Amino acid sequence: MARNLGCFNLPVVDVARARAFFGRLGFSFDAVFCDQNTACMRVNRQTMVVLHARSRFAGYAATPICDPGQARETVVAFSASTRQDVDVCVDGALAGGATVLREPEDLGFMYSRSFCDLDGHAWEVVWMDGSRISAG
């Protein structure tokens, strides 16, 4: 059976604020699955990130919701088409109130930058040129 990560769920303090933040970074939203407590953000044709009000997310979680500003459960990574696209996205996030998670990493064949969004969730934007990976 082929597997696909179709939906990634995150709790946010303010859905409208989170939707505006990610909208400024170029993400679109599926209106069918959006309401005042949920914003369904399209990453690509198969993958969505669903931003839930913390109270709604609590209904999905079997344990208390962690504070992403205090503990890191995951770093959500997505690809960019070019190195410049990495910079444009992360610079836009920082201009919108995000904070730097780590310093940029440049391995020649791969370039990445990371940030924490307005709710403290960690994101990494990665460009990679597989043809530049040296054998061995």
Rank of each mutant, 00 (worst) to 15 (best):
C40E: 07
M128R: 10
D117W: 04
R3K: 14
Y60Q: 01
W127Y: 15
G97F: 01
Q70T: 15
A31G: 01
N9T: 06
A18M: 09
R54V: 05
V49T: 00
G23F: 05
C7R: 15
E73F: 02
T47R: 07
D35F: 07
A80I: 07
A61R: 03
A71D: 02
R24I: 04
D30Y: 08
M128S: 11
G108E: 10
Q36L: 03
P64C: 01
S131D: 15
G59K: 13
W127N: 05
V49A: 00
T38N: 11
F8Y: 09
V86C: 05
V12C: 09
R56A: 09
G120L: 03
A20V: 12
F78V: 02
V43L: 12
D14W: 04
D91F: 00
A53E: 08
A31L: 02
R72D: 06
D119R: 08
A2I: 04
A135E: 08
S114D: 07
A61M: 04
P64K: 00
F115Y: 11
G108Y: 09
S112N: 14
M48T: 11
E73W: 00
S114F: 04
F29P: 02
L51M: 13
V15C: 07
S134C: 10
L25M: 15
R102L: 14
A62M: 11
A122K: 07
W123N: 01
S131R: 13
V86F: 02
N44M: 04
V49E: 00
R113C: 09
M110V: 13
V49G: 00
S81K: 01
Q70K: 15
G69C: 12
Q70L: 15
F109I: 05
R42F: 00
G26R: 03
D67L: 09
G6D: 14
N4K: 13
G96Y: 07
V32G: 05
R42N: 09
G59Y: 06
D87L: 05
L10Y: 03
E105H: 00
A20S: 15
S134G: 12
V88C: 08
A18H: 03
L118M: 13
V43S: 05
G97T: 02
Q46A: 09
E103C: 12
A122W: 03
M1L: 13
S79F: 07
D87H: 08
A39R: 01
R3H: 15
D129P: 03
A61K: 02
Q46T: 10
M1S: 14
A98T: 07
R24P: 00
V90D: 03
T82S: 12
A62D: 12
A95Q: 08
L10C: 06
N4P: 04
S81D: 02
S55M: 07
T63A: 14
R132I: 02
H121M: 02
D117E: 09
N37Y: 11
R54G: 01
A31R: 13
D117K: 10
S114M: 08
G96W: 06
R72H: 08
G130D: 12
V125Q: 06
D129H: 05
A80Q: 12
A71N: 05
V13N: 11
R17P: 06
W127L: 05
V32Q: 11
C7F: 09
D67Y: 08
A18F: 01
G92M: 10
